[in-house]
């Protein structure tokens, strides 16, 4: 049964990208366990504003786990202690009365902090711009049955396409590697005939951009897939490695 709990929050506050950040401790009373984590932060901000303090800046948008905008590293987990959900789908019933909750931004050189808990994830857009697309000739619509796709490949492509680009993989990785994200974006296209035409160029371009932006080297610790809210598998990373190595050997 949900009840109201009292919690202590340790929140990372940082004025700007260059400013030095530190933890601030806040106490919240009578938080409904039925509220979501972000609603709880809304309550905290209401409280801060009424006290004449600066509210905590954090990213959020759809609040239904699909846009990939919310982030937050909560008690040592990207998207909090619950599995396979984003922060916006995390509820306060996952926490007990008297809990101390540490909230940090994603920490990675590729994702610099903008303010408080907000980080700049523009690097992911740059990687997509480097090749995460299919160049289309906008002619007539082809017949759906004209391009047969094995069920297995369709399923694997769909699983890879579940990636919402939130960056939890980078946040979870001790190497700050973006391989899970890049491999999902390469896989979702490489598995389908429409994407295979540009597969080699895409793998090379996206990996080159990822390296250029300063993301780390993958050492297969599997922390990314354990923390991914969409359960994207590292078998996608194996596929990316395969695609990339084959493409490079052909050059």
């Amino acid at each position: 049964m949900d009840k109201n709990i009292n919690i202590t929050l340790k929140v990372w506050r940082q004025k700007g990208p260059k400013a030095k950040g530190a933890f601030e401790t806040y106490k919240l009373k009578n938080v409904s366990q039925s509220s979501s984590f972000l609603e709880m932060l809304d309550v905290l901000n209401e409280q801060l504003v009424s006290e004449g303090k600066e509210p905590v800046a954090f990213d959020h948008d759809c609040r239904e786990g699909i846009c990939g905008m919310c982030s937050l590293y909560i008690n040592g987990h990207p998207h909090g202690p619950d599995t396979s959900v984003t922060t916006c789908q995390l509820h306060m019933r996952k926490f007990d009365d008297g809990a101390v909750i540490t909230v940090e931004p994603w920490r990675s050189a590729g994702f610099p902090v903008i303010r408080d808990l907000m980080v700049d994830r523009y690097a992911f857009d740059k990687i997509i711009q480097a090749g995460g697309f299919v160049s289309v000739n906008t002619g007539g619509v082809p017949d759906a049955n004209a391009i047969p796709i094995p069920k297995k490949n369709a399923d694997l492509a769909m699983d890879a396409a579940a990636c919402i680009g939130c960056g939890a993989c980078v946040a979870a990785c001790k190497n700050g590697s973006a391989m899970l994200f890049v491999s999902a974006k390469v896989s979702q296209l490489a598995l389908l005939p429409q994407g295979q035409v540009e597969a080699a160029r895409r793998a090379k371009a996206m990996v080159a951009k990822m390296d250029e932006l300063g993301f780390g080297n993958c050492t297969n610790t599997r922390a990314c897939e354990a923390q991914c809210p969409k359960e994207v598998s590292i078998s996608n990373i194996a596929r990316l490695n395969r695609e990339y190595i084959v493409a490079k050997l052909k050059d």
């Binding site: 340790k10 950040g21 933890f23 590293y73 008690n75 040592g76 987990h77 540490t102 940090e104 920490r107 990675s108 050189a109 590729g110 610099p112 902090v113 979870a172 001790k174 190497n175 700050g176 590697s177 300063g214 993301f215 780390g216 080297n217 050492t219 297969n220 610790t221 599997r222 922390a223 897939e225 354990a226 923390q227």
Partner: peptide, 30 residues
């Protein structure tokens, strides 16, 4: 690789670290 990966991790470290169950201890301490 270790030096590059430390750099990619950034200057600020997490205050709370939890190793998920599926992550082998060896893999993070090679």
């Amino acid at each position: 690789l270790t030096l590059q990966n430390r750099k990619a991790r950034g200057g600020d470290r997490y205050a709370v670290n939890v190793r998920p169950k599926s992550v082998e201890w060896a893999s993070q301490n090679m």
